[in-house]
């Protein structure tokens, strides 16, 4: 299929320069690459800039209410597992008002493809801090800087027993398309954290990796089965070192030819390494002007991709199992089983 088949007739109203434009195009490309017909795809969203996405995709779409996209999507997918269901959400929509639905769709492992557009700001309401804004961040609702610690989305996903977590960047189209395609191919709740720039209210929030000159040194694109190599000259690798005193393992940067360089295993059920990889560089967003004494890159690509039974399949399988051996399958048969008498 062609990406154009997934474009709706609506004029795309993201601000000029907004990172959401790129994700929108990546979604159309990914959906074409996946090749599921438009009428078998449902895109559900809540409220926020990112939640406008369904309007620009020529599939079935439902732009619902703030924070509840996850619950609506759970209803769509569970009742109709034959559909491909996407959820579009932002850092406010799914880490603040929709936090409960977010952790529970992950815990249940509902087979959804969830794109979380993380720009660390409330854009549609014109510039308030979000649950992923760095501590000390100055915004209209935090004129003296926030006093809150931010969420690190990957920690939330792993804490909720997530089976799939990927991270991508608005300006990296190939990685974004790869992550979206992998999310769809994964059976279960796939979370793709899309780091997007809000050109109006939080410009440059991901500059550390978004700047073309810096990106290769400051990020690593993880690929399952491949060595963890990065850098403009592909001269750096990642390894794990155990602190001899505290026994705490930590990621370290070593030369690319060091035999300790790790090979990425996204399918590993144990979360230890996935967590360490996902947390690399996150201390930079812990607080405004955070002091960072390591040179670890931010991990992009599919960090975790493991299999587990999906909720929608389990719910439907249980119904079919019960029905197979049921004595009554219709209303009249059901009422015939009641203790009754004739007058």
């Amino acid at each position: 299929m062609e990406a154009s088949q997934f474009k709706s007739d609506q004029y795309v109203r993201f601000c000029p320069g907004c990172g959401d434009h790129a994700i929108c195009m990546a979604l159309q490309k990914a959906m074409a690459q996946i090749g599921i017909p438009t009428h078998e795809v449902a895109v559900i969203s809540g409220i926020g800039c990112s939640s406008r996405m369904p309007h620009y995709l020529n599939t079935y779409g439902f732009n619902t209410i703030h924070g509840r996209g996850g619950a609506v999507a759970t209803g769509v997918k569970t009742s109709h597992p034959e559909l491909t269901v996407w959820q579009m959400s932002g850092d406010g929509d799914c880490f603040a008002i929709g936090g409960n639905h977010f952790i529970h769709e992950i815990r249940r492992n509902v087979d959804l493809n969830v794109c979380v557009f993380n720009n660390r700001i409330y854009g549609l309401t014109k510039g308030q801090y979000s649950p992923t804004s760095a501590k000390g961040f100055v915004s209209k609702s935090s004129p003296f800087g926030t006093v809150e610690r931010p969420f690190i989305p990957a920690q939330l996903v792993l804490g909720a027993r997530g089976t799939f977590f990927a991270r991508t960047l608005d300006v990296d189209m190939p990685t974004t398309v790869d992550c979206l395609v992998a999310a769809q191919q994964h059976k279960g709740c796939s979370i793709v954290e899309c780091l997007v720039n809000c050109v109006i209210f939080n410009n440059g929030t991901h500059a550390w990796i978004a700047d073309r000159e810096q990106r290769a040194e400051h990020s690593i694109i993880l690929k399952h089965g491949e060595k963890m190599i990065f850098g403009a000259n592909k001269d750096k690798g990642l390894a794990v070192e155990i602190d001899p005193v505290t026994f705490v393992p930590k990621m370290i940067v070593v030369p690319a030819d060091d035999p300790r360089v790790l090979v990425h295993d996204a399918h590993q059920p144990d979360t230890t390494l996935h967590r360490m990889l996902a947390l690399m560089g996150q201390n930079r967003i812990e607080a405004v002007n955070a002091e960072v004494d390591d040179d670890l890159p931010i991990a992009l690509g599919v960090i975790r991709n493991v299999e587990a039974e999906t909720y929608d399949q389990a719910v439907n399988a249980q119904i079919q199992n019960v029905r197979t051996s049921a004595k009554a399958r219709t209303f009249d048969e059901l009422t015939a089983t009641l203790e009754s008498w004739t007058l």
Partner: peptide, 30 residues
Amino acid sequence: KDMNVMAIQAEDEIAGVCTAIGAAFAGDLA
């Protein structure tokens, strides 16, 4: 379940109604 009923115990009241709205959007009696 013998009657083919799908009954979901949601994570909260809001999810209860929102999952139902999702099922209605997908064509069910919700």
